[in-house]
Design a protein around this nucleic acid. Structure first.
Length: 90
DNA sequence: GAGGAATGGCTGG
DNA sequence: CCAGCCATTCCTC
């Protein structure tokens, strides 16, 4: 576990349900604006994939990006959380 | 839109 | 310190 990774985790955990941020955005919040790939690596090597909503982190342009459990699961989770957010806001 | 190069941090030697 | 890895991003055609 590294300070940069911890920053990334905290930032990702700060992303609300139904919302998605880009790696660049997370990297910036983590303190390293250009470390977009380092962010992905940290998320991939994350110690608790279940408590870290890494599926809320996507690539720029709205692309799904990657996912440790499979990009297809990522889309499903995103869609699910999107419904949850709608329910909460309803 | 597709292809190539660059970036920034982490791991292992 | 150096080389390799990675779930991206930017530049050029």
């Amino acid at each position: 576990m590294t300070p940069f990774a911890v920053r990334v985790y905290k930032v990702v955990l700060g992303i609300p349900i139904g919302q998605v941020r880009s790696y660049k955005w997370v990297a910036r919040k983590a303190g390293s604006p250009g470390a977009c790939r380092a962010v992905g690596q940290a998320l991939k090597r994350n110690p608790y994939p279940l408590i870290i909503p890494c599926h809320r982190v996507v690539k720029s342009g709205g692309g799904a990006g990657g996912y440790a459990l499979g990009g297809d699961k990522k889309r499903l989770l995103l869609d699910l959380e999107k419904k949850i957010a709608k329910c909460l806001g309803d």
